[in-house]
Amino acid sequence: MTAVPQLPAEALYAERMSKSFGGLKVFHDVSFTLQPGGLLGVIGPNGAGKTTMINIISGRLAASSGQVRLGETRIDGRPVYDNAGRGLVRSFQQTATFSGHSVSDNLRSAVRFARRDLSVLERLAPLLEQFGLVENWNRHAEVLPYGLQKMLGLTMALATQPRILLLDEPAAGLEKSERSNIDAYVGFAQREFGCGVLLVEHDMELIRRLCPEVIVLDGGRLIATGSPDEVLNRKDVIDAYLGGGDEEDGDAEH
């Protein structure tokens, strides 16, 4: 075990993260750094290990080796709620709301669970207005259109005042016209909360628009790092997509 160097607070460090299930190694020595307020895209074909990575970082899965740190604090293997309390909050590919609760109760629950102050909802007001959540304030989440449920779930993550946001395919299932909401959301999270954002996404247009840097996963390995234009022109990245592509990768531009 090497000594932990002095690190700037609130940056997310993944160092040689690996994960095995039984004798099968599915995630291989992945390392990267997400600076405070930074934005790092994560792309790769289905089965590349993107969600596994989010599960390890958030604490849902224990890493088999390597470590994850938030600032100087080692966080891998800690309970998900513990990491959320530290400001490391993840989203889910599907809608992530409490369906039998109103929009208002969903947001209040998120604030309470993270033990934050309800005044954060005032800071979120512009975003809630823009997404159309204010006009649905007292409606149950389950009766909202899918796109609104998705944005509610993402806004709940933001209501916890995270330092690091792990976004697992936030644009999945959204109409083309709704995807600009993700741009607004990510921009707001960085601007208003100073969040570092790890953005796992299949929508390459979105990745190109938002991310100055991306990492590419394939088969649980990090195969490329660089700007979106750089990595998407690399032969090994193109091969990874062509080899592992399926119908769910339809958004990917190769």
């Binding site: 959320a84 909050v89 992530a96 669970f113």
Partner: peptide, 14 residues
Amino acid sequence: RAMAEDRAVASALG
């Protein structure tokens, strides 16, 4: 109720 509806989400929020 939130935990009963979706433990993963409740836990992810803290």
